[in-house]
Write a protein that binds this DNA or RNA. Sequence first.
DNA 1: ACGATAGGCAAGAAACTACTTGCCTAACAA
DNA 2: TTGTTAGGCAAGTAGTTTCTTGCCTATCGT
Lengths: 100, 100
Amino acid sequence: MADDLFKALADPTRRTILDELTEKSGQTLFEICSRLSMKHQLGISRQAVSQHLALLEAAGLVETRREGRYKFHDLNTAPLRRIAERWPMPDPSEPEKRTP
Amino acid sequence: MADDLFKALADPTRRTILDELTEKSGQTLFEICSRLSMKHQLGISRQAVSQHLALLEAAGLVETRREGRYKFHDLNTAPLRRIAERWPMPDPSEPEKRTP
DNA sequence: ACGATAGGCAAGAAACTACTTGCCTAACAA
DNA sequence: TTGTTAGGCAAGTAGTTTCTTGCCTATCGT
């Protein structure tokens, strides 16, 4: 359960996919592939991206809907909230400690 | 940078360590070892735990201070905030969507 | 000084992950 | 019907990661 979430976030390519879906939700597999190679210089096969999307979906971070031969991928950030719930954070006035 | 954070969170044993440090900050390596095997039935060697702590420290989630022959481990949840910042979440009134 | 306790370093085994390759099905257009 | 486009499945390989084993250093008590 929580396993799927953190495993999904563990890979940099998957995090970039989440970034792209944040920017534009409802993309198809091919659209995501193009963006990864165009904007991020990621030389990665369609199947690899498809497998990443499957993991993101298992984690609940991506939801899909089929329309004809297209499958659209939507971002769902709700599962991320469980992270903040699990390890309570101090108030966000001081954003992050930098080693001085 | 972000890599270290998500890699650190990817392992279930490391997340349990964070849980333990949430409950009681400032534990030594041996204290953490005992708790993992007592409370969580994790048969794991001291060295394995030590390596986990090193990764958590690299991610900034754990900070350490030495005192004599003891090394105390403190939780720092600040890096977690970057997750929420990277992928904006809707307001938390509806906690999480359950597949109906 | 000696033993015991707390922790560290490093090399190898075992398990897991990401990615590729090759083939297959479904929807749409000519 | 034939070709094309969107996507799926599965087996194998290469690269990581986790964990163990064995040895080593530092601190403290007697």
